[in-house]
Design a protein around this nucleic acid. Structure first.
Length: 734
DNA sequence: GTCATTAGACTTTTT
DNA sequence: GTCTAATGAC
């Protein structure tokens, strides 16, 4: 096992006890080291595998580590405490509930559920949701939870002019937490915060965990937030055997509360820590790697680290500037075809298209579809986010947790069964008065005529059937029957529209997912429902990528982390998109964008293509673009520019399949030419111009077209001026 | 209470 | 250019 590692990797794997930080550059064998370390501890050091906890950020990473370990240490691998932060947190919460003698009912809310609950809470408190905006509240509460700040502590931050606003937000936060608790629900943030709170409050519980966990290993340490940091340091506090692996250059989740200081300050927190670097890259060609290195070197807040490789030089990085986003799609398509014909060793599954925002995927999807190139889009609208799936899950969640008000509200009134806000309020008060669950209260309300409509009777009967048959039938069968007998399926089967049929199909796909889940479980017992719901709450689409299937992969740059492909296309290399416009006003967020770019570039093994469009339609309006500053950070000797053909600039462009009628409506067809007003192309944001009296300047903003355009120009000597093209007599400076 | 229509927001990234 | 939430008519 150790023979397959290089000296640095071997040193990392075999280092002694105590805190260890491994700074592992992209493609340097990070997962391999983490895996080998666990195997080393179990096999060479005789550490019991159930005393090792290893946390990752994605299920994919966790299962990859588990699979590798199965090969190295056999069935022992199954006893490791290995999983995502969130799954480990949930496990601790469930263990604790069991210990406290509470029911196993616990529902994990995602951000949609959070938002629904927040809207209710804001209304209940009598706030105007135009002033107390649910989305902002969600953001503030999530952020507080990332930083491990509870409602009381949040309230104590109030001071000065902001005090009133903080106080108001604290009220929302407080009631939100109260409602969650009443319903036996937790949100994503709670999965980390709540265990931390429990461990801090209960010294005996903490001692028990610290006794149990002898070794803690953390993957992607640069992406941990304060709460996750607290959790890992608490749990590993007994032995201080914390083995953290990460790369500060790949920290891309600052917006989600990741605190890059957790890794940068590791040596401060653990002065006796061993810090080791892995700087040999096994993935990319020299040209790709040094291009990526020269981009990331522009960041100021870095730990000193330079990746090197013994791989061949490879081909130059290609940068192609296209006219529009549709041309960008065509350019990628053309390159893919070219790659396939040139290199017999390359398969569709070796190719990936990356973009900064999900909205960009559409054009590529259309391009691939037109030419019959098989593809898969990772992320975007998730399967489990579709309305019909969320409905079905609401039925299931209500069965698992009869106090889950949100799921009850959704399920009981989909399809509508005459239970509006008024009836629900009655149900709620029955539940409080008689001390019964919400679902029980619904039954009572239906029996004594508070709710008259017959639909509710059918609903309750179907639910009762689900519970009654628990011992006789599988979860998947019962779920299907629940959806059929309650009248939910009929709701969609009624109309024969394409859309409704798709929805029914999706529901059957959910049923097969349940079947699959049941088959993978060792035993059939009463916990299947709860476990399935936990499973879907904590998975993402990324976990479902099947690598062997012959198709190209399209995804956001964020989802690409941890993956690698022979050929990578990074699209939309434009200012405002990459770096994103919402990230350019602060150095911190700009540097995060640059790290994101670095992550994207280092996914490529053999070929790297960068693309940009000179004009792009955003929010339904076309706008001119300047190319990304990151492109200028790559040395010229590594890059091959395929610039937009300047010869075509004057005159007429051809060969757009989309064109516009006089009324402005869009027609898609072929063979029609589209004429561009070439005077319009003369003025682009970022372009250098010269004025007779003001001198040299750069165009900052533009309204209008061609000679009618009005420009905002930042002159080198005299500052920003507003100019009308018609009168200004500007010249373009090349 | 229900349904259809409209207005508005949204598009940075996700466990 | 798409989806959702709010609104108003019945």
């Amino acid at each position: 096992m150790l023979n397959q590692l290089n000296p640095d990797q071997r040193r990392a794997v075999t280092c002694g006890e105590g805190p260890v930080l491994i700074l592992a550059g992209a493609g340097s064998g990070k997962t391999r080291v983490l895996t080998a370390r666990i195997a080393y501890l179990v096999r060479e050091k005789g550490v019991r595998s159930d005393s090792i906890m290893a946390v990752t950020f994605t299920n994919k990473a966790a299962s990859e580590i588990r699979e590798r370990l199965k090969k190295m240490i056999g069935p022992e691998a199954g006893r490791l405490r290995l999983g995502t932060f969130h799954s480990q947190g949930l496990r601790i919460l469930r263990e604790e509930r069991r210990r406290a003698g509470l029911a196993n009912e616990l529902t994990v809310y995602n951000d949609d559920d959070q938002l629904t609950l927040l809207r209710q809470v804001i209304q209940e408190l009598g706030f105007n949701d135009k002033v107390v905006v649910p989305k902002s509240m969600l953001q503030i509460i999530n952020q507080a939870k990332n930083e491990n700040v509870g409602p009381e502590e949040y309230r104590s931050t109030a001071s000065g002019a902001q005090a009133f606003i903080v106080e108001r937000t604290a009220k929302v936060y407080e009631l939100y937490q109260k409602r969650l608790k009443e319903m036996n629900c937790v949100d994503f943030g709670d999965l980390i915060c709540e265990p931390v709170r429990l461990l801090k409050r209960d010294g005996r519980l903490l001692a028990m965990y610290q006794e149990r966990i002898r070794h803690m290993l953390v993957d992607e340490y640069q992406d941990t937030n304060r709460a996750q940091y607290a959790l890992t340091s608490l749990l590993s506090g007994g032995t201080r055997n914390i083995f953290a692996v990460g790369d500060p250059d790949q920290s891309i989740y600052g917006w989600r509360g990741a605190d890059i200081n957790n890794i940068l300050d590791f040596e401060k927190d653990y002065p006796d820590a061993d810090v080791l670097k892995l700087e040999e890259n096994y993935r990319s060609t020299k040209k790709i790697l040094s291009s990526a290195n020269s981009v990331i070197e522009n960041n100021t807040k870095r730990l000193d680290k330079t990746l090197r490789t013994q791989n061949p030089d490879g081909d130059k990085v290609v940068f192609e500037e296209c006219e529009t986003e549709y041309d960008e799609g065509r350019a990628v398509l053309r390159w893919i075809k070219k790659l396939m014909s040139l290199d017999k060793g390359i398969a569709y599954s070796d190719v990936a298209i990356f973009y900064r925002t999900n909205a960009q995927s559409r054009v590529f999807e259309e391009a691939m579809m037109r030419d019959g190139i098989p593809y898969v889009i990772v992320g975007g609208t998730r399967f489990y986010d579709r309305a019909e799936i969320r409905d079905s899950l609401a039925y299931m969640r209500l069965m698992a947790n009869p106090n889950d008000l949100l799921s009850l509200t959704r399920a009981v009134n989909t399809p509508s069964r005459g239970v509006g806000p008024v009836a629900l309020e009655k149900v709620r008060s029955i539940s409080i008065d008689r001390g019964v669950s919400l679902f029980e209260a619904l039954k009572i309300a239906s029996d004594n005529g508070v709710i008259r409509k017959s639909g509710v009777g059918q609903f309750i009967a179907a639910c009762a059937g689900f519970t009654r048959d628990a011992a006789l039938h599988s979860l998947s069968d019962r779920t299907l029957r629940l959806l059929e007998e309650s009248g939910y399926m009929t709701m969609w089967q009624g109309d024969g529209s394409e859309e409704a049929m798709q929805r029914v199909e999706n529901i059957f796909e959910l049923i097969s997912a349940i079947k699959e889940f049941e088959a993978a479980r060792a035993s059939a017992d009463g916990r299947a429902l709860q476990e399935f719901l936990d499973h879907v709450a904590l998975i993402s689409d990324l976990d479902g990528i099947e690598e062997k299937i012959e198709r190209i992969t399209m995804m956001t740059v964020h989802s690409a982390k941890g993956l690698e492909f022979k050929a990578v296309f990074i699209t939309g290399m434009e200012e405002g998109l990459f770096p994103h416009s919402r990230s350019v006003d602060s150095v911190e967020s700009l540097e995060e964008e640059r790290r994101l770019c670095y992550v994207a570039m280092t996914r490529a093994r053999k070929r790297l293509f960068l693309l940009a469009a000179r004009s792009r339609t955003v929010w339904g309006a076309q706008g001119w673009r300047t190319r990304s500053r990151f492109l200028d950070e790559i040395p010229n000797e590594h890059i091959e520019f395929i610039e937009f053909d300047a010869g075509k600039k004057k005159g007429v462009f051809q060969a757009h399949e989309t064109h516009y009628t006089d009324e402005g409506s869009q027609i898609t067809g072929q063979g029609e030419a589209v004429f561009y007003d070439d005077t319009d192309a003369d003025w682009r944001i970022g372009m250098k111009v010269s004025h007779a009296t003001f001198g040299l300047g750069v165009i900052k903003e533009k309204t209008g077209r061609g000679m009618e355009a009005k420009l905002l120009v930042n002159f080198r000597d005299v500052g920003v001026k507003k100019l009308a093209v018609k009168y200004a007599g500007l010249e373009i400076v090349q």
